[in-house]
């Protein structure tokens, strides 16, 4: 009876030991199955990363003021600048790049009339505070629009203008008797972001 009992214990322990290895294998398969299920499917189309955003921002940094100048030659500086902004945004979208820009243009209309135009294409409404000398005004530009206002005092032949919006504070030194532009450009593709400021 004891012998039979011991034999049963031996057989039982042996069978437990052989089953242990199988459970390990089964457990490994189940774990791997869980991992494989968690892996996202790769996209069919793969694009090699490119690092050309800095070059495109250099290109736009030159062409945005150029668009303003060419528009001035045709007496439509703001219209052509806005037109060009929309063109660039469309082109960049076709290249999987998000292009946003905020520009401010000053134009001397008369001695006591400095026209300030804000073009906001940043993706949200913006309110800017503009200070020239001791005077300050607020301009609100809804997204994807331009807004003009008059700075009704003579800023002087040369003037400093401080632009305040969001958490950004910029001071530019401009001349009254010419078109002036400040632009904040941002290009974004994936995790690659390129920002550039242009003054002229």
């Amino acid at each position: 009876m004891v012998k039979h009992h011991n034999r049963r214990i031996l057989l039982f322990s042996l069978s437990r030991k052989t089953r242990k290895g199988q459970f390990f294998i089964l457990g490994a398969f189940l774990l791997c199955a869980l991992f494989y299920m968690g892996i996202p499917k790769s996209s069919q189309l793969t694009a090699s990363p490119t690092y050309d955003l800095i070059y495109i921002s250099n290109n736009l940094g030159k062409e945005i003021p150029n668009a303003l100048n060419l528009g001035l030659n045709e007496s439509q500086p703001i219209e052509h600048l806005e037109n060009f902004t929309r063109f660039v945004r469309r082109v960049m979208l076709a290249h999987s790049t998000n292009f946003t820009v905020l520009w401010i243009v000053t134009e001397n209309i008369s001695t006591n009339d400095l026209n300030i135009t804000v073009g906001n294409f940043l993706g949200s409404n913006k309110t800017l505070n503009i200070t020239i000398g001791a005077s300050s005004i607020n301009i609100t530009a809804p997204d994807n629009t331009t807004n003009s206002t008059s700075f009704g005092s003579d800023p002087g032949t040369e003037f400093n203008m401080t632009i305040l919006f969001d958490s950004q504070n910029r001071t530019v030194e401009w001349q009254r008797d010419k078109l002036n532009i400040y632009a904040l450009i941002q290009l974004k593709r994936g995790n690659n972001i390129q920002k550039r400021e242009v003054t002229g």
Binding site: D52, E63, N66, A67, L70, G71, N73, E74, N83, F84
Partner: peptide, 18 residues
Amino acid sequence: AWAAVYIIAGNQSYEPYE
């Protein structure tokens, strides 16, 4: 193919091109 993009606002007049 690789694609390079260059944008111009125009030559002597406003005429934007990609």
